[in-house]
Every structure is written in structure tokens, then in C-alpha cells.
Design a protein around this nucleic acid. Structure first.
Length: 300
DNA sequence: ATCAAGACTATCTGGCGTTC
DNA sequence: GAACGCCAGATAGTCTTGAT
């Protein structure tokens, strides 16, 4: 589920997010399940994907929780993190077709661009807002009056009072931002109207989101938590397929997969008395059986 | 693995001035 | 008139170091 709900994104503007915090949330959206939950988030993993320091990981995790953007539950050397309000599980195919699901895709090339990380926090928000407008407008140029553009994003004076724009920055700063926006957008000023549209390499929709990848992450997390070191690729794939097949039931049941993995290991090692001698590995057929039982499906 | 303190670095603003 | 380069000082963000 590489996406952020539009109304969740809108709250970004009021939370005074730092650059790292924004990237943390984007990275979280990459690994969340349809309910907006990311299981087994490890600090090293985030350090790598967000390119942040150890301390930055903890700072972000704590500050985002304080700001009410995420909910954190401690796991085994890792965390289960819920992206608050970013739940997509209630939508059906029809909802998507009818255009009733408003979201910003985080699977867009702009987020993997090498310059992205260098952008300032509010530049990121501005780029994301314009990206959303351009995607919604099917890549047609976004036309907006110069004055209106500045009033929307930057503060301005009105009758001696300072009126805030959504970015709460000065006009001068917004002018500076226009330079960086040129990385991703073509910006032309014609008759007092800005014409803003995505540059060629970025004028594309996302690639299909990787449901499989997210499930595979879950399996690896469960392996880490149950101490399985020997991760057979074929068994992993088969287990992923089973989870994918029953994903709807699994998500609504709210069950903890760790228990199924533990049970799988117990059965595999039923003849081994000493726990430390257990052979810890994956066995898809056994997983399948336990999984179905727990979901209340009777094996035929 | 986690976190706190302090060091270091980046950012924003608003003024002045130049260019188109 | 709009855009923007440069500058200094205040403020905020991030990283390094080091302890537990």
C-alpha cells in the first residue's frame, strides 16, 4: 500500500514536520499493509531506506508519535507502527473505480529521485501538493494565477495584517522554492498565470503497487521474531501466497502471525525436547494448515 | 538497542541591490 | 514590477559521541 490518504497528507501542513519526519512517513507508507500498519519496523531498515542516522530514527519515531501521526508498539528489537488514519482496508474495487478514494501515491519516481532527500521539508510538501494536483489533472498543466499561487502557499499582508498561507513561509522563500521545483516541474509564467506541469521523466503514474513485497516483509519479520535463521526461498514464497490468498480474512481477524509461526516450530520439533536444539525453519504446508484452522476454515 | 547532551550544520527571514 | 543573488543573525534540525 504505497500511498497516503489525501486528508492525512493535508494534516502534514499543520504538524511542522521535519525533512526526516516526512521521509519517515513516506517510507512507512511503502511498507504498510492495507490497514496502514507496518509490522516489524527495524531501526537499521529505516536508516537504510530513509538514509538517516540512528538517532534520527528514534527522534522521528518519538516525535511523530507525539504529533499523533503514528502509533508505535514495541516488538522484539523492532516496532509495529500504525500510520494513523491511513487505513485503506474498507475500500472495494468499485470505490476505486468510482474515484471515491483520494490518495497520494508514494510509489512515484519523484520519491526515489536522488535529489529528493536534499529538499527542505516545506519544499517536499509543496512538491507533493503539486504532484497530487498534476496527477489528479491527468498531467494537464496546472494553471493558477500568480497572486493566488502566492497567497495559497505563502504569507501575505492584507490591510496591515499578516495572513498565513498553507506553508507559512514568506513570499521570498516561496520564490526561492520555485527554483528547486524546476527539478520536477516545468513552470511558465504567462499573463500572470503560472502553468505548472510535471517534467517528462516524472510525468507518469506509479507502477503497480507491490502487495507481494509487503507480505514478504511480514514473513521476514516473523522469522526474526521467532528466531528462524534458515529462510528457504521456496517455502517463503508459498507462505506468502497463502497469506495473500486469505489476506482479507486474516486482516479482519486481527490475528498475530507470530503465534502461527511459533506453533509451526513446535509441531516441527515435537520430538526434540531441548528447545535450544530445535531446528528452526519454514514449512509452508504446515503453516497453511494452522493458518486455515485459526481463521476458522475447516480443511476439506 | 536505546537515548541524551552537546557539537555542528542548515534553514528562514528581511534588507539591499541588480537584472530582465 | 517581478525575480533573485548575497548577507547576517536567530532559530531549528541533524549527527556524533558516549553512557547505560
Amino acid at each position: 500500500m504505497q500511498r497516503i490518504k489525501l486528508d492525512v497528507f493535508k494534516t502534514f501542513f499543520q504538524k511542522n514536520l521535519t525533512g526526516n519526519e516526512i521521509d519517515f512517513l513516506i517510507a512507512l507508507s511503502h511498507i504498510q499493509n492495507p490497514q496502514g500498519k507496518a509490522y516489524g519496523v527495524h531501526y537499521r531498515e529505516m536508516m537504510k531506506s530513509v538514509k538517516m542516522s540512528v538517532q534520527a530514527f528514534y527522534d522521528c519515531k518519538n516525535s511523530l508519535e507525539e504529533k499523533g501521526m503514528i502509533e508505535v508498539k514495541k516488538g522484539k528489537d523492532d516496532y509495529d507502527i500504525t500510520f494513523c488514519g491511513n487505513d485503506f482496508s474498507m475500500y472495494t474495487e468499485e470505490d476505486y473505480k468510482a474515484g471515491g478514494v483520494k490518495y497520494l501515491s508514494t510509489n512515484h519516481p519523484i520519491f526515489s529521485d536522488r535529489n529528493w532527500k536534499k529538499l527542505k521539508p516545506k519544499q517536499k510538501l509543496l512538491a507533493m501538493d503539486l504532484l497530487n494536483i498534476n496527477l489528479a489533472g491527468k498531467f494537464r498543466a496546472h494553471k493558477i494565477g500568480r497572486k493566488k499561487f502566492f497567497q495559497k502557499y505563502a504569507d501575505h499582508m492584507e490591510g496591515g495584517k499578516r495572513v498565513k498561507g498553507i506553508l507559512e513561509i514568506s513570499v521570498r522563500t516561496l520564490q526561492n522554492y520555485l527554483q528547486m521545483l524546476k527539478l520536477y516541474f516545468q513552470i511558465k509564467l504567462e499573463d500572470g498565470m503560472y502553468h505548472i506541469y510535471l517534467r517528462r521523466p516524472f510525468a507518469k503514474r506509479t507502477t503497480a503497487f507491490e502487495k507481494q513485497e509487503e507480505i514478504e516483509r511480514t514473513v521476514h519479520t516473523m522469522c526474526r521474531r521467532t528466531g528462524i535463521k534458515e529462510v528457504d526461498p521456496k517455502e517463503t514464497r508459498d507462505i506468502c501466497n497463502v497469506i495473500s490468498l486469505y489476506q482479507k480474512e486474516y486482516l479482519s481477524s486481527g490475528m498475530d502471525l507470530t503465534n502461527i509461526f511459533s506453533e509451526m516450530l513446535e509441531i516441527l520439533n515435537v520430538n526434540v525436547v531441548a528447545k535450544r536444539r530445535w531446528k528452526k525453519r519454514l514449512k509452508a504446508s504446515l503453516f497453511h494448515k494452522i493458518f486455515r484452522e485459526k481463521l476458522g476454515m475447516v480443511t476439506a
